[in-house]
Amino acid sequence: MSERITRDDVVHVARLARLQLSEAEIDRFTEQLGDVLDHAEDVESLDVGDIPPTAHPLPLVNVTRPDELVESLDRFELLAQAPFAEDGHFRVPPVLGEQP
């Protein structure tokens, strides 16, 4: 089995991604993600020197929109899709902790 990613890494990543994994899934993902990362060894081991990164394939810049009002959504239509709405709001279970 690959040593690129450990079970602990998988558990940590699952928590960051808000996914709950069974023990079997943790094992399976540890192995499968390891395979993909093994394959990515060709990229990881590359000497890329000072090649700049390309986050976006097109050289577009400065695309903006004018500061003009556009009609908003109908609240009824929006909240009709909410799993739980109350009093014009989206309702959620208690939130523990502040915004980071």
Binding site: P83, F90, P93, P94, V95
Partner: peptide, 17 residues
Amino acid sequence: VRFGLRVDGATTGEMNT
């Protein structure tokens, strides 16, 4: 929170997960 499936939980974090 806003659309689609929700499986409830005791906190928002647990609900998300």
